[in-house]
Design a binder for these strands. Sequence first.
DNA 1: TTCGAATATAGACAGCAATCAAAACAGCGG
DNA 2: CCGCTGTTTTGATTGCTGTCTATATTCGAA
Lengths: 121, 121
Amino acid sequence: MSKSEVVELPVLDPATVVPCCPPITAGELSQDDAERMALMFKALSDPIRLRLFSRVASHPGGEACVCDIQDVGVSQPTVSHHLKKLREAGLLTSERRGTWVYYQVAPSVVAAMAAMLDLRS
Amino acid sequence: MSKSEVVELPVLDPATVVPCCPPITAGELSQDDAERMALMFKALSDPIRLRLFSRVASHPGGEACVCDIQDVGVSQPTVSHHLKKLREAGLLTSERRGTWVYYQVAPSVVAAMAAMLDLRS
DNA sequence: TTCGAATATAGACAGCAATCAAAACAGCGG
DNA sequence: CCGCTGTTTTGATTGCTGTCTATATTCGAA
């Protein structure tokens, strides 16, 4: 049994996630929209994840190797766990190049989150 | 002992919170900034809270009585608990008028959150 | 003052989430 | 093939969070 194939995860992908939800002020949120939005906000509701995300985002080209960003005060497996959550929420994508894994920001998803918070004041 | 005085909670207030944090892409987040931001995102990371917030925000004048928004599928104490969390995060303010309590959105705080997500793409 | 309606608090409990150590996996160089 | 480095997964543990019931508080009206 070859274990070396790439397994495609059944996970939120940007194309699906982006046209997600109306602005939070545009009317009462449906149950479904509320749950979708909550998943994205939850991804950014942890200080470690915020710092990891900002490190990726502020790297040149909006991408960074795990090895460049993993000193955030927790163990390396914990870093990996948080990066996975950010990936599952559609906020980051990842790509392996040789020994290293690079994470990139998914700009459209972050923009969608910002749109949810848009106030028509 | 008179229990009828208003107790001022030692809690995040908009004026303190707003000039909080730089955009998430502007550079590596400090530990403190990350923790402050995480608190706000955490407040919106629950579907019930999102629905409560959107109900307040989409009411005329950006304010609503608890009695108008509390049918979101959980018990009354749970609604009260969630509204408290939103208040503590600085996203809502509340005001008692007679028997009823009205919640208002704190627009500047929500705007600050949106600014954190701003991508200079 | 007494009652009832509207909210809030307290306490208990179940499920989830963050963390770590240990082990597994993947790619590279010898 | 072997060992080394970088990353992910697994399993266990511990603390936090959402939820409920029961109780308390606040205010207006009778």
